[in-house]
Design a protein around this nucleic acid. Structure first.
Lengths: 198, 198, 198, 198
DNA sequence: TATGAATGAGAATTCATTCAT
DNA sequence: GATGAATGAATTCTCATTCAT
C-alpha cells in the first residue's frame, strides 16, 4: 500500500477524468492508463468510489482562487486590483484546472455528498477571502451585502469558465470580459457600495 | 406526438430526477413514473438525452421569453429591471432544472455535439437578448463591451446557480444576492458604461 | 385493397431497401416513405414479411440477365458476343439493380426460403440460357461441361458486382474487366472447349 | 486474451450460425453455446461484428495462406495449380463461413466502415496474390490486364459460392465447375495472355 | 502483490404488431 | 379504411467487482 503506487494511480485517474469526464472514468480505463490490471487497483483501494474520492480530494486541495495569496501581502489598492485582474485572466486560461473543477462541481451536483461537502468548504473560504478583500479595497466596514457581492464575483468567474468550456465565449471575448471585470472592480463595485450609504 | 403526452413525460422525468438525481434517472424509471412502457417513451422522444434537454428547455426558456417581451417594448425601464430581477430569483429556485442544465453542459463539454450545439444556441440567444436589453435600458449605442457585460451577467447567474446547487448559498443569502444583482443593474452597470465615455 | 395502394407501398419499400438494406427496412420507415401510418400498412398486408415478399417478388420478375433477349435473335457469332459484352458492361453500371439483386440473394442466404426458391428458379433459367448460347456460339453439342462454364460465367459477373459494391473495383478496373471478359468469351472459352476434345 | 478462448468462442459461434442462421445469431446464444456470460464475450471481442469477422477470417484466410506459400516458391507450376484447385473446392464447402462472408459484405455495403475496410483489405490482398500468381505461373511481365484477370478469377469463386448458398448448384455440378476452373487456369488463361501478345 | 478472465445485473434502444379512436 | 400511441420482449453493450492462478 505504498503511497507512491497510490499517487501513480491517482495521476492516471486524473488523466482519465480530464479526457472522459467522471462518468466516463471506468476502472478498466484507469488500469490501462496506469499500466496495471483492474485487479491490482483493488489492492490499493477497496472500491472505485475510494479512488475517485482520493483523486478529487487531492485535486481540490491544490486548486487556488483569487484572493488567497493577495490577502497576506501589503499591496496598495491599485496593485491589489491589478493582481486580482491578472489572477482572473489567468484562471480563464487554465483550461485543465477549470475542466477538473467543473467536473468536481458536476459530481457534487449529481449527488456525491462527500465531494459536495468539500467543495462547500472551499467555496465558503473563497467567498470569505473575497469579502475581506472587498473591505480592504474599499475601506468599508463589513456590510450586509459584502458577502453577496463576493458570491457574485466568484460566481461570475465560474459562469464565464463554463461558457469557455462550452465554446460560447472565444479568446477575444474573454479579453473583453476580463477588462469589464476589472472595470467592475474599479468603478462598479465602489459605486454599488456608495449607493447603500445614501 | 401530442404536446400533452410530452408534458406528461417531462413531469414524470422531473419527479424522478428530484428523487434519484440525474445519475439515477433511467428510462425505465421515467417510464414507470409516467405509467408507460419504455418503448412508448421512444415514440415521443428519440433518446434519453432529448427528454432531458426538453425538460431543461421548458423551464429555462422562461428567461428567454421575458427578454423577448421586454424587447417588444411592453415595459417601462423600471418595470423591466423589476421583471429581470424576479426572473433571476425564479431561476435560482428551479433546482432540478438547474441540475439538468449542468448535466447537459457536462455532456456538451465531453463532446456530445448535439447537446453542445443546442446549448450554444441557447447561450448565444440569452447573451444576445441581454445585450439588446442593456442598450435599451441605458440608451447606449452598441458598445464594444456590451457583449462582455451581457456574458458576465449571464455567467454570474450560472455561477450563483452552481453555488446554490452545492449548498454554499442558503435562502437568505440568495435574497441578498438578488438584491445586489438588482442594484448592479440599476447603479453598477450604468456607472460602468459612463466610465468608458470619459 | 386496391392494387394501386399496394404498388405505392411496394415502391416505397423498394426505396427503403435500397437505402437501408433489407435488415434496415422497418415498418415505420416504409410507412414514412409511403406517407402512411404503420397501421395503414396492415390494412393492405397482414405482416411485414408479406410486404417484403411482395417487394422482392416484383423485383425479381423485372430483372434481366445476359442471354435472355439475345437468344431469340438471329445474330451472327460476332454480333452475339458483342451484344453479350455490352450487356455485361451495362450490368456493372446499373448500381441500383445490382444492389437490390444482392440484397435479395443476401436475404435468401440468410434463411428466407421463399426468396431462395425464386432466386433458384431464376438462376437456373439464366444458366440454362447461357448454356444454349454457348452451344450456338461455338457450335458444340451439349457437352458435360457446358453447364459448368455457364455457371462460372454468370458467377463471375455476380462476383464482380459484389466487388464493385464493396468499392474494391473502381470504374477503370471495371473497363479492364469487361475487356478481359470479352476476350475470355472470344478466345478463352473456345480454347477450353477444344481442350476437352483432344 | 488467450487464443484458445477466442477459438472456443468462434467454434460456439459457428455452431450457432449453423443452427440458427446469421440472423438468429445473438450474443446471448453465442454465450450460452460457449458456456460463458455475455460479458465474457466482450472481454475477448469488442463487438458482435468483430466475432463474426474473426469467424470468417479464420476460415477464409486459408486461401491467402496458400497463395503466400506459392509465392515463396515452394511448389512447381503443376503443383501450384493443383493446390489452387483444391483450395477452391474447399472454399465451396465451407457453407457457414461463406454465409458469414456475405453477411459481412452486406454490412459493408450498407455503410459499416469498419467491416468495409477489413473486407477491402482482404479482397485487395486476394487479388494482389492472385495477380502475382498469374505472373509466376505464366512467366509474364506485369501486364495491364493481369489485375482484371485476377479480379475475375476471385469474383467467379464468390459468384459460385453464392450459387451454392442459394442451392442452385449441387455437389455434382460443383465438381464439374471445379474441373472447368482448373482447365481455365491451365488452358484458358494462358491462351488469353497470348492473345494480347499477338 | 499482481493478473485478467469471468460474472451478472442493468443500461439504452429497436421494432413488429395491436387497438381504441 | 386510417391513425398513431402503446406494448413488451429482445438486442447489444457496459462495468464494478471477484477470484483462481
Amino acid at each position: 500500500m505504498s503511497e507512491d503506487k497510490k499517487l501513480h494511480i491517482i495521476e492516471a485517474t486524473n488523466r482519465v477524468i480530464y479526457r472522459m469526464g467522471i462518468a466516463g472514468t471506468t476502472m478498466r480505463r484507469i488500469a490501462d492508463e496506469a499500466g496495471l490490471s483492474t485487479g491490482a487497483l483493488y489492492h490499493h483501494y477497496k472500491s472505485k468510489e475510494e479512488i475517485l474520492y482520493d483523486a478529487m480530494d487531492r485535486s481540490l486541495s491544490v486548486s487556488t482562487r483569487i484572493a488567497e495569496e493577495v490577502q497576506q501581502g501589503k499591496y496598495s489598492r491599485g496593485e491589489v486590483i491589478k493582481r486580482i485582474s491578472e489572477n482572473v485572466k489567468d484562471r480563464f486560461n487554465k483550461i485543465d484546472d477549470n475542466r477538473m473543477q467543473f467536473y468536481l462541481a458536476q459530481e457534487a451536483i449529481l449527488g456525491n455528498e462527500e465531494i459536495s461537502n468539500q467543495l462547500k468548504v472551499k467555496y465558503k473560504k473563497w467567498i470569505g477571502h473575497t469579502e475581506e478583500l472587498l473591505q480592504r479595497l474599499y475601506e468599508k466596514q463589513p456590510g450586509k451585502y459584502n458577502k453577496a457581492i463576493a458570491s457574485l464575483l466568484i460566481g461570475a468567474i465560474d459562469g464565464i469558465v463554463m461558457q469557455t468550456l462550452l465554446g460560447v465565449a472565444n479568446t477575444d471575448e474573454i479579453e473583453d470580459i476580463c477588462e469589464v471585470y476589472h472595470k467592475l472592480l474599479v468603478e462598479g463595485i465602489p459605486k454599488l457600495l456608495e449607493a447603500w450609504d445614501e
